[in-house]
Structure formats: C-alpha cells, structure tokens
Amino acid sequence: MLAFVLRRVFQSLLVLLVVGLVAFSMFRFVGDPVDNMLGQERTQADIDRLRTQLGLDQPFPVQYFKFLQGAVQGNFGVSYRQGRPVADIIAERAPATLELAAVSGLFAITLGIILGVFTAIRRNGVAANAIMTLSLIGVSLPTFLIGILLIYVFSVELDMLPSFGRGDVVDVGWWSTGFLTKSGLMALILPSITLGLYQMTLIMRLVRSEMLEVLRQDYIRFARARGLRERAVNFRHAIKNTLVPVITVTGLQLGSIIAFAIITETVFQWPGVGLLFINAVQFVDIPVMAAYLMLISVMFVAINLIVDLLYFAIDPRLRVDGRH
C-alpha cells in the first residue's frame, strides 16, 4: 500500500515535470510580451534592457531551469502585466475558483448520483424517462449558452439572482469566502449550476448505466432470493458496486470543472483564476499562464491520486497485501 502510494507520487512528479516543460516551451511561441509592455514609443535599447531584466535573453534550458527552481519554492515570477508576484495574484484569486468548483462539484455529484440511481431503479417510469430526455439538454448545450440562458431567466426576467460577480465576501485569514454572506451565496447559485450541469448529467447517465448493469448481476438476484428488502438490495448491494467506475470518471470530471471554470468565469465575470488566465492570454503574461497551467495539472494529478486511493477504500479485491 505504502509502496503503491510512493510509486504514484513519483509518477505524478514526472507528469508535472513534463507538463511544466510543455507549458513553458509553448508560451515561448505565444508572442513577445515585451511588445505589449513597452507600448508604441520604444527604442531598441528599451527592449534589450527589459529582456535582460526579465531574463528573456538567456538560453531556453536556463530559463526553464530557473522557472522550475522558482516553481518548487512557490515562486512563479512576476506578472508582466501587474508587476506583482504571480503567486500572490493566484492566491488572491484561487478562493473564488475553488469555492465555485466545490459547490458545482458537490451539486454535480449529489444530484448526479441521486438521479442516476432513481432513473435506474424506475427505468420504465414516466419521471425517469422525462429526466433522461431532459438530461440530453445538459449534455449537448454548450456551457456558455446555459450560463447566458440562466442569466436571462433568473437575473433579467425574474430578477431573483445576481448575473455577475461574487457578491460580498468575507476574509477569513488570507482566504476570501462568499459562503458567509447572503449575497455571496446567491451569487454562487447560477455559476455553480452552469459549471456543474454538464458534469451532473454525465455522472447521472453513467450511474444509471452502471446501476442497470449491476442490477443484472447474479449477486443481486441472490440478494433478492435471500428475501432482502428492495432498499437493501438497491442501496447496500447495488450502489457500492456501481461506484468504482463512477469514481474514476467523476474524479476526472472534477478536474475539468476547475479547468472549464474559465468559460463560466468569463460569462459571469467571476473573479477567479480562470478569468485571470483569459486576461493573461490576451496580454501574453507568460508567468501567469505558466503558473495557471501548473496549478491545473497539480490538481489533476492530485485528484487522480485520490481516485486511486478511493478504489482501495471501496474494492477489497484491490487490497492485495491486505490487512490480515
């Protein structure tokens, strides 16, 4: 078990190293930040001075090595646009994105599993069929369109919920949270649904098909033949067996919730790292982009690691070197 974890951590570090290289080298071809930073009235001397200052005159491997060296210490350099350390900017923006991702992830998982199980158990019912049909909308509509539709209905027409921003936030230490104020919570609703809807329908459809598969298994028949209640058969015997593949996909989906937050944050002008990234791209703010990419890959790798560990918790067959 410990050996497995160590091996996975080592593999994860390798993945991060490669992602760092790709990210860093890709951004070298995005454009020249010096153009943007100096404006129209510039001389070649200005350009050279700034290049030296930013270290852009050094050979590529040296730049990458310096980038890695800094990254390990949490130092991603200074934003070209804002002139402040990237780590500070991201730390300031991260709570907004993480809270949004957490709420929409929770929404997607809870509702996805509940509806998935429901549509599997009542697979011929009217309600289940209606939900399945509606779920096609969630799967096929693009995120930004859902966001705009929700804004139109709930902000413009009904005037119930705010259409942009985080509302009032409260600082808890360095973390700014929207969970503690009414306007903060209200502001979370629409973006969370927008961000989570696709994942929710995906999880629901997956849970449903897995559950139908599991319900056909012999051990479910045997559980029925032993006279167990339907509730025990469905929720004790079937659900647990459904979860293993569901966790895999859900884990990856949670990663993409954070990654997809870019679109939702743009639609709702949500002050998170996604919006930060979009602005950074427009300005060729390489340190910010590189840091964002690293951050996202760290999250993906961490989620994958957690998913692998969850398998162990759920499926005893994987605990080869078990506890007895």
Binding site: Q217, D218, Y219, R221, F222, A223, R236, H237, K240, N241, I314, D315, P316, R317
Partner: peptide
C-alpha cells in the same frame, strides 16, 4: 456460479 452470486464488496 458461486463466483458471481456473492457480492464482492461485502
């Protein structure tokens, strides 16, 4: 089939 009639996770 005794291999499939017991719930593997319980």
């Amino acid at each position: 089939d005794p291999l499939t009639s017991l719930n593997p996770l319980l």
